[in-house]
Amino acid sequence: MVLGELVRLRAMGPADAEALWRWNHDPEVMRWMDDTYPQTLEQVRGWLAERPRNAYGSLLLGVEALADGALIGLVSLHDAEPEKGIAELDIYLGEKDYWGRGYATDAMRTICRYGFEDMRLHKVTLTVVTENHAARRVYEKVGFVEEGRLRQVFRRDGRWYDMYTMGLLAHELR
């Protein structure tokens, strides 16, 4: 487990399938996320049971609120290679009652700190849809900076959106 000020990050397993399934089928939660084809609860449970264990190249952690122990989201560092020292980060909070209360910011700081200190990463990268202003505010608060723009690569509601690529170097973490 990895502790932040508001959150605890911990490995996910089949017991977390119901929450993950519910989040992935909530249009408001998935608004700016790459979503996949609909899956059954059993498929999600199977995916969590069969996915390889956490390792340097693929780390998936549940985000729990310290205040009440509720599973509220997930974070992932993936595509990491020790030779490059760079990983890509994904995060989302599926429990909307926890939005706007500092949990996402703390989860970001906590996973980045873990990446830099424990995994010895040099850089963490991510992409965010240009219209996802709330997420971008969180990323900038933690220290991420815009590094580029991918034009018209995300489609939602019949419209194409751009995405920002953002990066954070170890010494930039706030």
Rank of each mutant, 00 (worst) to 15 (best):
V129A: 14
V138Y: 11
H78C: 04
G115S: 07
L168V: 01
E131H: 15
T105F: 01
D68S: 13
D97G: 06
L126Y: 08
A135H: 15
H78T: 14
D79G: 13
L150N: 09
L60S: 12
W160H: 08
G69E: 13
L93K: 09
F154M: 13
V2P: 01
Q152A: 12
W47H: 15
E50C: 10
V145N: 07
G115Y: 06
L169F: 15
E131V: 14
N132L: 06
E140F: 06
R136V: 08
I111F: 02
L173N: 12
L48P: 08
M119A: 13
I86D: 05
R53S: 03
L60P: 00
N132D: 06
P52N: 02
A104N: 07
L173V: 01
L6H: 10
V145L: 09
P52D: 10
L150Q: 15
R156V: 05
T125Y: 08
V129H: 14
A87L: 04
H171Y: 05
E88F: 09
R10V: 02
D34F: 03
F154D: 10
A15V: 00
R155M: 04
L9E: 08
V2E: 02
E50F: 04
D157M: 00
L3R: 10
R156Q: 15
F116M: 08
H122K: 12
D106W: 08
T40M: 10
V138D: 09
G57T: 05
R45L: 01
G94K: 06
H122L: 00
G167M: 08
E117D: 13
G46V: 00
G57P: 01
Y164S: 03
D118P: 00
M30V: 09
L126D: 10
V153T: 14
A104P: 02
R156W: 06
G46N: 13
D79Q: 13
L41F: 10
D97H: 05
G69Y: 15
Y37S: 11
D106Y: 05
E147D: 09
V138G: 09
V142R: 11
A55P: 00
R149Q: 14
T127S: 12
T125L: 05
S76I: 08
H25R: 14
R109W: 01
E5F: 04
A70Q: 13
W99G: 08
R149F: 14
K96Y: 00
V7Y: 15
G100R: 15
Y56D: 04
A55S: 03
M12H: 12
Q43L: 12
D157F: 03
V142P: 01
H171I: 00
W99L: 04
Y103V: 11
R101N: 08
A87E: 03
G143R: 12
E18W: 04
M119E: 10
L41V: 01
E83C: 02
T130G: 09
T105V: 04
T40N: 06
F116S: 09
Q39A: 07
E147N: 12
R22G: 03
A65F: 03
N24W: 03
P38V: 03
Y103K: 12
M119K: 13
H78E: 14
G94P: 04
Q152T: 05
T40I: 07
L126Q: 07
L20Q: 05
V7G: 13
A134G: 07
V129Q: 15
M30H: 11
Y161V: 03
D35Q: 09
G4E: 04
E140M: 14
T40Q: 06
A87K: 13
A134D: 10
T105G: 11
T165V: 10
